[in-house]
């Protein structure tokens, strides 16, 4: 067992191996763990924040037991600074405007269906049914936008934020950065000494 200690971070998740990363990579990845600057939100209004949090809870199935992975603050930061992905669908406005309009749409849909209760105030099952309805519309129109393209916008931003986080890597068994170390044991069923069986 003593030999195991020779592998830094064994059992401590991706962050435990940060000592084997190059400093620039370590800086970028570890920053995702640290405190965030104030003001926490610059783009979303408080109402949009409430709708977006509820939406992300569903899209990413977040529970209170999950390790803390910031998603809304990351999306807010991108929309506030215009850090988009370099394109948008012709039938959708720019990402920031598409987020605003789609969150307002969700809230509006909830009010119409749930006796005036907005999206965040609706029950879990109600919100789930509402989102399924949007997904099923496919290329059909939803508040002036094709529902399928709106869905892709939500899932893209949510996945980009969530699966960029080392806690999410531990959840799926991804080893994280591997420079300058690299890999030595390539092949089906082979593991580096520090890789945990999945």
């Amino acid at each position: 067992m003593g030999r195991m200690r020779a592998w830094p971070g064994k059992g401590a998740g991706a962050v435990g191996r940060a000592g084997t990363w190059d400093p620039v990579t370590a800086g970028v990845v570890l920053a995702r763990l640290g405190p965030r600057h104030e003001p926490a939100l610059r783009f979303f209004t408080p109402r949009e924040e409430a709708v977006a949090e509820a939406l992300l809870d569903h899209v990413l199935a977040r529970s209170p037991d999950d390790p803390p992975v910031p998603v809304l603050t990351v999306i807010d930061d991108r929309l506030a600074t215009g850090e988009y992905d370099g394109w948008h669908f012709a039938d959708l406005p720019q990402d920031a405007e598409a987020w605003r309009r789609s969150l307002a749409g969700l809230d509006e849909d909830a009010r119409l269906r749930h006796d005036g209760r907005g999206f965040p105030e609706s029950g879990y099952g109600e919100r789930d049914r509402l989102l399924r309805h949007v997904l099923q519309l496919g290329s059909g129109d939803w508040y002036g936008m094709p529902a399928g393209h709106v869905w892709k916008l939500w899932t893209r931003y949510a996945c980009e934020a969530y699966y960029a986080h080392p806690h999410a890597w531990d959840e799926i068994g991804f080893g994280g950065p591997a420079y300058p170390r690299g890999y030595l044991r390539l092949g089906r069923g082979l593991r580096e000494p520090w890789e945990e069986p999945r």
Binding site: V59, L135, E171, I172
Partner: peptide, 13 residues
């Protein structure tokens, strides 16, 4: 999406 997405992702390796 939702629980389905998270669960499938855990199978990444």
């Amino acid at each position: 999406w939702g629980p389905d997405l998270r669960k499938r992702m855990t199978d990444y390796t």
